[in-house]
Structure formats: C-alpha cells, structure tokens
C-alpha cells in the first residue's frame, strides 16, 4: 500500500483539512444550511401531496447531488486559492494528497448524507423504507462513488477560472450512471424488494467506485502538476 500512497501522510492531510474546517467552518455551515433550505423548498412544493415512490427517491438524490456540488470542491479549491498547492507538492506524493482529499470528502459526504436522510425521513412521511438493508447499502455505496467522482472533478475545476459554476457541469455526466442506479435501488428499498434481487445494482455501484478511484489515481498526477 505504501508504494501507491502513504497511509499515515494521507491521514494527516485529512486531519489537517478537518482541523482547518473546524477553525474556518467554511464548508460545514454552508452545507448544513444548504440541505435545510433545499428540503424546505421541497416541502413547500410538495405541500399536502403524497409524492410517489419514484419521485421521493429521485428528490432525495437530487438533494444529495446538489449538496455535494456545493461542498466537495472546497478541499482542492481552498488549496488553489491560498496558493498552498506547491507546499503540498513539496511534502507529499501526488497520490497521497489525492487519497487524503478523498478521505476528507468521503467523511464530509457521509456526515452530510446521514443528516439529509434523517431530515428526509422525518419531514417526508410518505418516504417509508421497507428494506433497510438495501437502503443502507445504497446510501453507503452511493456515498463512496459520489465522493470518488467528485474528488477528481474537484481537482480539475480547481485549476480553472470558473470553479463554482463548472463543477456541477463537469460532474453531472460522470455521476449520471451512478445516480440512475442509486435512484433505482432506493426505489427498490421503498418497494420492499428482497436484497438478493438488488445485488446486481450493488455490483454496478462497486464497479463504478473501483473504476473511478483507479483512473483518478492514475491520472491525478497530470491534474495536480502544473
């Protein structure tokens, strides 16, 4: 493993970002407010209607997608804006930096998704999960896939001029296959399908995570280095 990247160093990069986040609260506060605002808008829009299974599964992932888009570019953009990219270059291998950032985005997205799902369950009464195993696995695999793809795209857009607007534009086509399959799988969880029947979907999600992570690892050098 140390050949690919250094685990201790990657962990320290994660810890650095985490401490920096605690001190500046740049992403966290904005993210929490983003989730709350989006859910509030949805509640107003839905009013007293009961959304169908398809719609409520879709909306959940729309909220997750856009929250991710508002918070996950931060790790790379902040290094670029502060001019600390070179500093990181001088103290760690590119792959170590990538995995440190990936870990940070993973944890951030997990926390955010737990928050979103809990709020969603409380606020949307028609969102009743029948197969918890499918649902939890979907959230887990969806989160890691989403973090992997959004981390490498974040590294790309950090080098561009129009960082914020470009992020969802570049991410959406990459994330679309994942979004399609997690929405389908969430629907299965709401319909109460047996987990054995959802295995194919999970395999696709795992494959997606593995492919994106592997290609990010291979190409990160070209992105990271000027």
């Amino acid at each position: 493993m140390n050949k690919i990247f250094n685990i201790n160093s990657a962990l320290t990069i994660f810890i650095k970002d985490f401490r920096s986040e605690l001190r500046t609260r740049y992403a966290l506060n904005a993210l929490i407010m983003f989730v709350i605002t989006t859910l509030a808008i949805i509640l107003f829009a839905v009013a007293n209607e009961t959304p169908s299974i398809e719609i409520s599964a879709g909306i959940l992932w729309i909220v997750i997608f856009f929250s991710a888009m508002s918070g996950m570019a931060r790790t790379f953009v902040s290094e670029e804006e502060r001019g600390t990219v070179m500093t990181l270059h001088l103290i760690a291998k590119p792959s170590t930096v990538f995995f440190g950032k990936l870990l940070f985005n993973l944890i951030l997205l997990f926390l955010m998704n737990i928050f979103t799902v809990v709020l969603y369950l409380i606020l949307i009464p028609s969102f009743i999960i029948k197969s918890y195993d499918i649902f939890l696995l979907t959230i887990f695999l969806g989160t890691i896939g989403l973090s992997a793809a959004s981390t490498i795209i974040a590294a790309i857009i950090a080098k561009s001029n129009t960082k914020g607007t470009l992020y969802p534009v570049l991410s959406f086509p990459i994330l679309l296959p994942l979004l399609m399959i997690v929405i389908k799988s969430t629907k299965s969880a709401l319909e109460g399908i047996e987990i054995a029947k959802a295995m194919g979907d999970f395999q696709v999600m795992i494959a997606y995570f593995v492919v994106i992570t592997a290609v990010s690892y291979l190409l990160f050098d070209y992105v990271w280095k000027d």
Binding site: N6, N8, S9, T12, I13, K16, R19, S20, R23, T24, R82, G83, T84, M86, T87, L88, L90, I91, A92, T96
Partner: peptide
C-alpha cells in the same frame, strides 16, 4: 528543500502547528 516568495504556509495554523503538520505529512 524549497523556499520561494510564492510559497505559502497555512494561515489558519500557528507556525509550530504548521511545522508539526509538515513533519507528519512527510511521515
């Protein structure tokens, strides 16, 4: 080792914290 005017340290940490972090990241 590298020193340049355009090199930046982490503003939100103290000098000591910066150096400790760098040592840890360097493993």
């Amino acid at each position: 080792g590298f020193v340049a005017p355009y090199l930046q340290m982490y503003d939100e940490f103290t000098a000591m914290e910066n150096l400790e972090l760098f040592a840890r990241i360097r493993n």
